[in-house]
Design a protein around this nucleic acid. Sequence first.
DNA 1: GTGAAAGCGCTAACAC
DNA 2: GTGTTAGCGCTTTCAC
Lengths: 344, 344
Amino acid sequence: MSKVTIDDVADLAGVSIKTVSRVVNREPNVREATRLKVEEAVARLNYRPNLSARNLASHRSHLIVLLYDDPSVYETPSSGYIIRLQQGTLRACRTADYELLIHPCNYRDRKVKSNLTGLIERTRPDGIVIAAPLSNMPQVIKPIAATNTPYVRLSPGTRSSGEFSVGTNDREIAAEMTRYLASLGHERIAYISGHTKHKAVANRLKGYRDGLEQSGLPYAETLVAAGDNSIGSGAACAEALLEDANPPTAIFAANDDMAAGVIRVANRLGIDIPGQLSVAGFDDSSLASQIYPSLTTVRQPLPEMAERAAHALIGSSENGASRNGTDVVPSELKVRESTGRVPN
Amino acid sequence: MSKVTIDDVADLAGVSIKTVSRVVNREPNVREATRLKVEEAVARLNYRPNLSARNLASHRSHLIVLLYDDPSVYETPSSGYIIRLQQGTLRACRTADYELLIHPCNYRDRKVKSNLTGLIERTRPDGIVIAAPLSNMPQVIKPIAATNTPYVRLSPGTRSSGEFSVGTNDREIAAEMTRYLASLGHERIAYISGHTKHKAVANRLKGYRDGLEQSGLPYAETLVAAGDNSIGSGAACAEALLEDANPPTAIFAANDDMAAGVIRVANRLGIDIPGQLSVAGFDDSSLASQIYPSLTTVRQPLPEMAERAAHALIGSSENGASRNGTDVVPSELKVRESTGRVPN
DNA sequence: GTGAAAGCGCTAACAC
DNA sequence: GTGTTAGCGCTTTCAC
């Protein structure tokens, strides 16, 4: 294995190591000819700067941490959710020569704080991307903020000033889905809400109400059931909703897993989807396109959101320019087989 | 944020930095009383050694890389597969104070080699866990081996001497599944094979044949279809198998996605599962328990396998003792709703 | 524009 | 058992 160091490159190029450093770090004040010489030497020797040496000297680690809820605890979030987040973050890291450290973390644990400060002090990441629902938990955010490590929150649910976050249009897209169902003739559209800890998910309920109103449909509490994001809770809510004397003709669940629970119950009860009942989810998890019938849902641009977050972090570590405000990357409706016209 | 260094600890404890280093690294030759003094100072100051400084001085990075097939390319491997691998690797890392770098990698890319050597030269990981199917691809293994970075292959499919790998009993468990189906009275048991690139998956076909033989059933080429691990290919194979004049009563697919494709086709064709057709998969992906009917499948101990692999790597980097041979962690049958007695 | 020297925080090798 | 001295490979001053 080649242990090419900056000295080797400097020797070959006939310059000082400082100049090599300048070229490698794309700093200004290098004559074009010199730059070319150095770049050629770098290529010839296949030189790669040593991350650790770089970090030690520069107090920058070229490391980004992706923080998300530990799926091993309750099997949520779903693996697809995490993988898409990782993909986006990795994309940003790769183009900028940063590495990604993943850190699933259980917010219910008493030791979250020491867990997080330990991680940060050991690895000194240049930035932390915090996925929902951790992104709106004080016990997660506060220890991180206390270390002065830059971070970006994903779908924090609420806006807060002085920091940067990336979200999507949860509320608007939930309204759009509701209007879409109404446009199919549905008048009794039920809603299964998710975990209230997840603020962005809570916004979907508001969107549902907006959508009803925009469609001239009344809001009825009997048409709203409280799930907890799991398949089982979706099934339980569906049973409760469907045994009503005047059952809904469409059910909109705040995530795909719960929608899958609805489909499961409908299958068991011999209710045809979408003939007798339309079902819509949220997330476009891998499940959504794989189950039968495939699920009409909302696709969140998770990779893009994570990529923007990581990109902002990398930018601020490179040139100190930290952004603030909230970037909104719009979600989109994915209409599939599980929704159709209201039965007549 | 505390920037406590080893000097601060040494000062407070009234010893030299070397002694602090010894205590922190659990090296021998420290008097118990001294050790306690130092440990107290470490706790009081909340000292955490700086990873980069450590790495630079010791040529060990306390970093483990998990390498797997890039799912963004063909949506395989499934996200559940990757997440379970990550969980196991993380478990090993966490207990030993190592960090995990994830590296999805596209083996079809011409630049795999420079991609991998670049990663290794930049981060100098103490070890690499290589997931299947990358674990049996020369274009992946060779560049890694050339860098002398310790690695462990997961489910390499074939054994090779002089190195350590962790696998499972693919062949035996596939035979067991086949015998299980036979024990339900099935005599026409079809098999849908997966990607031949994945050697461990190829072993499942051998297991299927073993199982038939052990059950006194003949092997028939017409009952074997070649899929490519995708849902679509499972569906296509199912259609081909089921339109036969004498169709199978059970279909065993080499992975869950293909089994889901079979179920999909059966649903469309109005074939009842498991009443008229039994379906079995392999992997116990999240899909398996979520679809209807839930899938009888094989659960691979992926987290345990990855954990053992990472653990071995960490051990060899700590004390230089590298293992070899193959550890086998057994898979187990998960009998669910999709299999039942043969129709009479 | 470029280079020389200092030092980031730690561990290795060797003294004591 | 414990401390001292050199670096690890880079970036950061600050000269030139």
